[in-house]
Design a protein around this nucleic acid. Structure first.
Length: 111
RNA sequence: UAAGUAAAUCAGAUAGCCGCAGGCCUUUUUGGCCUGAGGAAAGUCGGAGCUCCACAGGGCAGGGUGCUGGAUAACAUCCAGUGGGGGUGACCCCAAGGCAAGUGCCACAGAAACAAACCGCCGGGAACGGAGGUCAGAGGUCGGAGGUUUUCUGGUUGACGGAUUCUGACCUCCGUUUUGGGUAAGGGUGGAAAGGUGAGGUAAGAGCUCACCAGCAUUUAGGUGACUAAAUGGCUCGGUAAACCCCAUCCGGAGCAAGACCAAAUAGGGGAAUAAUGAAGUCGCCCGCUUCGUUCCCGGGUUGGUCGCUAGAGGUAUCAGGCAACUGGUAUCCCAGAUAGAUGGCUAUCAAAUACAGAACUCCGCUUAUAGAUUUGCUUACUUU
RNA sequence: CGGGGCGUGGCGCAGUUUGGGAGCGCGUCUGAUUUGGGAUCAGAAGGUCGCAGGUUCAAAUCCUGUCGCCCCGA
């Protein structure tokens, strides 16, 4: 998983991103993006009860985490990114999910 | 072979690459090694450990449990039995104390739902009606001893007798109505009708008597006990307690966001109640106990870190005791501990990789979900030897 | 972690306390009224009472288990 430096850990950071960030919906996920004053990007991954039971939520979070970690080098630094899992995240194949993630990032002009 | 029944097990494996959490080692702060979800981790249904509240106390209230014996830290769990029910059987299921302590309910139907008597049956009294018999009186009719006579095969009178009609009284029988009794055999109902069947008995009937069966009580025998068997007895008592209730037994309350420590921050502000057999101290009430001169509300501050946090009613193997649940001994092992929350992705092979599903203080149970696969015991049916 | 509530025709609800007939309003359908529609009047259809099991003669109601939804407190 991501090292702790690259995680959003405080509740107020999440609230800040929700309120002031840019909302970009994709087919399998939704991203909130806002600038931070750091040298790297920080990720937060959220899966609500709507996604499914605990197993499905965990699986969605793990898949999104892998994608976020591997995308670290390709994105421009200095942002807080919160990724929301949807119901379709669990059913999607990994390749399609990855593709969807990069189209979302392109929309936000982070790569 | 087929169908069934009971029990148990597995829950993908191996290799490579990129990554995550914890621990240890090294330290060029990058490496190396080890470990890393389940049989239900789930639901949170029952219990316990642990922590705090007061030392965990007494009574009432409230709640749980409910055949017997045992196991256990404890339980609504487990084991062995008893009784009842289902199945041809292996086997399965049962909240299974008390309605012979009291109260309530039993719709509709039915005479009646636990208290009697609506119909019926039986005999008694009264009234009315009918039939029969006996006696008395009366009427006509028939026979007629005898008397009388003027009419003589006639007229008249006529004791007595026969059958018959009417009236009255009494008796017997039957019917109807009514009255006060006996009885509970029978009565289209109903889930259920007051022990059942048969015989005797009676005015009619009835456990009124007898035989068998069912049930109850007592005694004896067996068993630790639930209970079982036999004998004897008086004759009989509806169902419902997952209705109130009674009996026995158990339960103080809250929960790891418990709780402890460190750091940081803020205030001594405003309002109210009060010096009383008052207030607070974790549940509802009372008692008891402890603490206090203060207590409550509003307002203000903190939302960081460390511990609790994993060695335990622990696992595995074996021996002994016990029918078993389980207990004891010995050896050996250490087996998740996160704090936005760790097990993932890709590739290859194995026929295929797919079910239900993710630890959050811990443990023992219960319940529910579960693709596919394997093993064993037993039962029934058919076939073959 | 703890506590509470709800589930009944297509929709919104009553009935559950104290067990015996499954109901109300809106909607749907048919007919009447109107030139037609609306409104009105008359009639009709439509319910596994979330699911499973049990107690009882009898269960929406009582008991047990289970599923789903909603709310509250720390």
């Amino acid at each position: 998983m991501l090292n702790r430096m690259f995680r959003i850990s405080r509740s107020e950071d999440y609230q800040h991103t929700y309120r002031n960030g840019l909302k970009v919906p994709g087919k399998y996920l939704i991203a909130y993006i806002s600038a931070n004053n750091l040298d790297q990007n920080r990720f937060g991954i959220v899966a609500s009860k709507k996604v499914g039971n605990a197993v499905k939520r965990n699986r969605a979070k793990r898949c999104l985490r892998v994608i976020a970690r591997e995308s670290q080098a390709k994105l421009s630094p200095g942002h807080d990114i919160v990724i929301i899992a949807r119901k379709s995240t669990v059913e999607a194949e990994y390749n399609r999910l990855e593709k969807d993630f990069y189209t979302v990032m392109k929309k936000a002009r982070l790569c």
